[in-house]
Simulated scan of single mutants.
Amino acid sequence: MEYKLTTPLTEEVTRKLRAGDTVLLSGVIYTARDAAHKRLCECLDRGEELPIDVKDAAIYYAGPTPARPGQAIGACGPTTSYRMDAYAPRLLHLGLKAMIGKGKRSDQVVDAMKETGAVYLAAIGGAGALMASRVKTAQLVCYEDLGSEAIRRLEVEEMPLTVVIDSLGNNLYQTGPQEYRTAMEQQ
């Protein structure tokens, strides 16, 4: 199935998505990589309010390059998601509904997704220019000292994504290779 979705993403919406579905995502998303995730969790440890509202939000695991004149953002491809696995369950339990990146996730992240109704969306690796073309505005939110890894608020329009792990735990990284082999054998 193909879905055109706009943030915020409610649990009612994310629970309908299935591994293999295509999502054209519009609205506000945030960029954050491992250093920013660590700081977010440190805020929580200190009892402080987070600098972004993660409830029903989507976080894109990306560290965009500087924008060229006339562009909202530079290349903005996904980073490997397992680097956020130590922090993701905590944010999922605070209401985060979508993570956008590439690569496998830990069992702890998948379990937290099933508990909270969240999804993991894959962005096209190696296509940072394509992903950047979907970004209409980009604003620095916090952690400027992290450079490209600072948290940014992006407004995106029809960002092309694939549901890789759904809220039931269905996982294309596990089922995809076997489905491919089966299809090749049938040819």
Rank of each mutant, 00 (worst) to 15 (best):
Leu5Lys: 12
Glu12Leu: 08
Glu12Met: 03
Val13Leu: 13
Arg15His: 10
Lys16His: 10
Leu17Trp: 04
Ala19Phe: 00
Gly20Leu: 09
Val23Phe: 02
Leu24Glu: 10
Leu25Val: 12
Gly27Ile: 00
Ile29Pro: 05
Tyr30His: 12
Ala32Gln: 10
Asp34Tyr: 07
Asp34Leu: 03
Asp34Val: 04
Arg39Phe: 00
Leu40Arg: 08
Cys43Met: 14
Gly47His: 13
Gly47Cys: 13
Glu49Phe: 04
Leu50Arg: 14
Val54His: 11
Tyr61Asp: 12
Tyr61Pro: 01
Ala62Ile: 08
Ala62Met: 11
Gly63Ala: 14
Thr65Gly: 00
Cys76Arg: 02
Gly77Thr: 09
Pro78Val: 04
Pro78Arg: 06
Pro78Gly: 09
Thr80Ser: 15
Ser81Lys: 01
Tyr82Met: 09
Arg90Val: 15
Leu92Lys: 07
His93Glu: 15
Leu94Cys: 06
Gly95Cys: 08
Met99Val: 12
Met99Phe: 08
Met99Tyr: 07
Gly101Pro: 04
Lys104Val: 10
Arg105Phe: 02
Arg105Val: 00
Ser106Val: 04
Gln108His: 14
Gln108Pro: 05
Val109Tyr: 00
Ala112Cys: 01
Met113Thr: 02
Lys114Tyr: 03
Thr116Leu: 05
Ala118Asp: 06
Ala123His: 01
Gly125Tyr: 00
Gly126Leu: 01
Gly126Met: 00
Ala127Thr: 06
Ala127Asp: 05
Gly128His: 03
Leu130Lys: 05
Ala132Pro: 11
Val135Cys: 03
Leu140Tyr: 11
Cys142Arg: 07
Cys142Asn: 03
Gly147Thr: 11
Gly147Pro: 10
Ala150Ser: 15
Leu154His: 09
Glu155Ala: 02
Val156Gln: 04
Glu157Ala: 06
Val163Cys: 09
Asn170His: 13
Gln174Trp: 08
Gln174Asp: 12
Gly176Tyr: 10
Glu179Cys: 10
Glu179Asn: 13
Tyr180Pro: 02
Arg181Tyr: 14
Thr182His: 13
